[in-house]
Write a protein that binds this DNA or RNA. Structure first.
Lengths: 145, 145
DNA sequence: TATTGTTATACTCTATAACTATA
DNA sequence: TATAGTTATAGAGTATAACAATA
């Protein structure tokens, strides 16, 4: 069945993102991680002791939804919550979390490399700038957190 | 907080798609339609009397998930299920569905126009081919329906 | 007064398994 | 034997409201 929607950039964007998420998800099942788990691990590994709120602000995940996500990572022994003061908690990687992060970085880097290789060479360098414009250009229309 | 993931095409793809879906969803609340509802309406309007299964194959929606979606459109008086034989049902637009489709087409066309205008001119023509390559290039990795 | 972490809750999307009836 | 429609169910993701404690 020919798809009359195939010429619409918004539709192609959704289909491409869905396919990408499904494939990355499959590559992470071996690590018992969801895509959002891996994203948080990478962010925590790159940043110094962020709070859950700051992670959520960066990744566009609501505070309330960070709780079960971090509970899961903590239960897996990958992160710990360390008091900053009597109100805030710093999210830090455990040694097991550091080891896991190294594996995750490898999986993600290989995946991103394969992704970009699927794009015909003449379009390749345009993808990230175009996606960035769509992402950040949607600001006014996006609901605030 | 600087986002160390911002340079990854896969991450940018997800963020762009999420922002796009949220914005299109907002534009469709006035029509009391979800994005997937609008997508099905457009597809049915372009194709002659498809079955639910064929719609699902085209849009990558499982048969089982088509049922409540079509129930909703039928309850809203926008589509009808007409017997093809004693096993299959053709999905057709009602007169109200045709009217609604005209409005939806206008909303979607305006949105797609704005989307593409947000992309800097030098990258604009590369977006759709790049997304198509990512979408269709994921085939082998995608789970079959 | 604003922010952090949290609980509870609900809605959407998506996925699987299984059943009936029919091609 | 394969396909169409359906039911039931479960897992994710995401959203809001509200609360206590603290900055």
């Amino acid at each position: 069945m020919t798809d009359p929607l195939a010429g619409l950039p918004g539709y192609a964007l959704r289909r491409a993102a869905n396919a990408m998420m499904a494939e990355l998800g499959e590559r992470l099942v071996g690590e018992s991680l969801r895509v959002s788990d891996a994203t948080v691990l990478i962010l925590v590994g790159a940043k110094g002791r962020p709070t859950a709120s700051r992670i959520g602000q960066t990744l566009d995940i609501r505070r309330a939804n960070m709780v079960p996500l971090l509970d899961r990572l903590e239960a897996a022994g990958l992160i710990a919550r360390e008091p900053i003061d009597r109100k805030s908690l710093a999210i830090v990687l455990t040694p097991a979390g550091e080891t896991k992060l190294r594996r995750v970085r490898g999986i993600v880097a290989a995946f991103e490399r394969e992704l970009i290789e699927r794009v015909p060479a003449e379009h390749r360098d345009h993808l990230l700038p175009a996606l960035d414009a769509l992402w950040r250009g949607a600001e006014g229309a996006q609901s605030a957190q």
